[in-house]
Write a protein that binds this DNA or RNA. Structure first.
Lengths: 353, 353
DNA sequence: TTGTAAGCGTTATCAA
DNA sequence: TTGATAACGCTTACAA
């Protein structure tokens, strides 16, 4: 069966949608002219353009991107790997990222990793099959395999961004859009030390692979030790973080001496702890000062309001989108950016004296 | 320049990554054998398979999906259009959707619409270019253009799902995975009426295109009127919903008679209203009962705790993923599903008597 | 068990 | 200003 070019032809494989050839046949030009009209309309004569417009409308043509990107070797997909979209902080980042990319004609291929480096590697492998225009991953800790893939992508000229982290001494060539968690941890310790606390604790995330929480915790402990304060590192149980926070109160009680101030890996833990402490008759901040992380809306509503650190969730998404767009425009690697966070001192760490 | 098949060949267009041909050359087979090995390993002789495995590893081959999906005419992309990922309810839906799709080997192409039907149409047009395996949109209200695209996709056999809504009399052929907002609105009214309230108000969302909030509101008003109660419909100002809730208190005050109970389009509005009422010395629920929607974490922490409706955010995502997978498996349209919500009666609507 | 040929729908290149 | 031709990297159909 020789292929014949009549309009009515339909091969055994097509999926029924109008193609460039269909439009071209209707407009009585060849498909390359239609393709050209779509990308550089000014290079097509007005009469021709008019017929093409009509044909486009009549067929309801939607360009096939698989075909287009295969032929051009260019992709407009940006792949992003995020621990959990249900967490408001990441949701805000992704929302801002999505908006910034859309404005530049880029599309977002999203995968969640559930904080698992292993799943991150798998998802990375998966999304890389699209030869994405840029890759966005969360944090700077990856499996060796994932790292290899990222390096390969970077070497091939694909901008690679690590969001939600910005380590001053990071040696990987990827762009970091975020902030220094160690710095936050130190600031959290200092905030409590400055208020006169000498018995501190850090309630770490129960998620073993929440590296950023651990990093804040380690820096918190180091800073406290340097100030010669007593400091204990606790780890929350896994499961609902509110409940984990409540449970942590029991653990605190079991310590030789109750700390006078506890910093938490996130606001949910801190809220649980705060509510449980109050329920057990421990005054906050009088007997126990509490400091969270994340600035979740709930913290503001407690009595006392929860002191916390506001991370630049939205800003990270916005900056990442912008960095991708610039890198693509100038064909350079994306630029790193340290974004400001704020320590919000509220009631739960107010000085009693 | 005749193309020659030696391994070292690199055409003017390729992007440098290893292709099937490279792997095949290294394994001393043809590319179709490698392709076959990748999809049906058992159909390849063990010796050959071994050589192919080695070649795969040596080249770091990553299959090009644009090419694969173009050739096969099948897509593993599921496109989802969501109003705003920064809203926790949608974040949870997308997280669950993402997990469900990943488990089935599907990938998530995500676009946000910012509650704008116009942007939804644009994004729909964009993502449809990938000939996605399924399309997920939020709600059942769309522009005529978007509707035409959805119908076309449906007619072509692509499962189309409308999430976060389930209207019993919906005539479109798309699967609805969600719940009946009118039913929720009526239940909210009944909850307040049953507690003896006769002067009601509904504080609607300031987002003009949050159709689901309006629908709950309309049903709330209808139910109240049927019970011969006084009922007022208010609309929140745009901007931060907490503040909008606070401001709404002023509007309430300006009414001839202060309602004894107000239902809100979402918990943030309700929280703002609650806090402002208390600040102005109005007792909740004594003088003013308040009912929200969304079961945002913050509501549980207020004093009194906010009565609200818990929508099945996660369940919607999970069910949508499952519906997509089933529809794809059986090559049938996706099945609709009504998911249960709960009215959580807490302190803010507790009966005073 | 493996291979040949053709084609998916688009764009790059070069020619007219 | 338009077109012919050859890719892009893969899979389907069919043959050996």
């Amino acid at each position: 069966m020789t292929p014949h070019p009549t309009p009515a032809r339909r091969s055994r494989r097509g999926h029924g949608r109008a193609t460039l050839s269909d439009v071209a046949a209707l407009a009585e030009v060849t498909k390359i002219t239609v393709s050209r009209f779509l990308r550089e309309p000014e290079r097509v004569a007005e009469g021709t353009a008019e017929r093409i417009r009509a044909a486009l409308a009549a067929t309801g043509y939607v360009p096939n991107k698989q075909a287009g990107q295969l032929a051009s070797g260019r992709s407009n997909i940006v792949a992003a790997l995020i621990p959990n979209l249900g967490h408001s902080i990441f949701g805000e980042t992704v929302q801002a990222l999505s908006e910034g990319l859309q404005a530049a004609g880029l599309e977002l291929l999203l995968a969640s990793t559930g904080y698992s480096p292993q799943r991150e590697e798998e998802q990375l492998h998966t999304v890389l099959g699209w030869a994405p225009a840029a890759v966005v991953v969360t944090g700077r800790r990856h499996t060796p395999g994932a790292l290899a893939l990222l390096h390969e992508a970077h070497a091939a000229g694909t901008p690679v961004l690590e969001v939600w982290d910005h380590h001053p001494e990071h040696k990987a060539p990827f762009a970091q859009i975020g902030f220094d968690h160690a710095q936050v941890g130190r600031a959290m310790a200092r905030h409590l030390l400055d208020a006169g606390h000498r018995r501190l604790a850090y309630l770490d995330s129960g998620v073993a692979t929440d590296f950023r929480a651990h990093e804040r915790g380690a820096a918190f402990v180091a800073e406290a030790k340097q100030a010669k304060a007593k400091v204990t590192m606790l780890t929350a149980v896994t499961g609902d973080p509110f409940d984990a926070g409540r449970q942590a109160f029991t653990t605190l009680r079991a310590l030789p001496a109750l700390p006078s101030a506890v910093a938490c890996a996130n606001d949910h833990l801190a809220c649980g702890l705060l509510l449980e402490a109050q329920a057990r008759g421990v005054a906050v901040p009088g007997e126990l000062a509490l400091l969270g992380f994340g600035d979740f809306p709930v913290g503001r509503q407690l009595k006392p309001a929860l002191s916390t650190v506001r991370p630049p969730s939205q800003e990270i998404g916005r900056a990442a989108a912008q960095a991708v767009v610039e890198a693509l425009e100038h064909a350079t690697p994306a630029r790193s950016q340290a974004l400001p966070w704020q320590l919000l001192a509220r009631g739960s760490t107010a000085q009693s004296a």
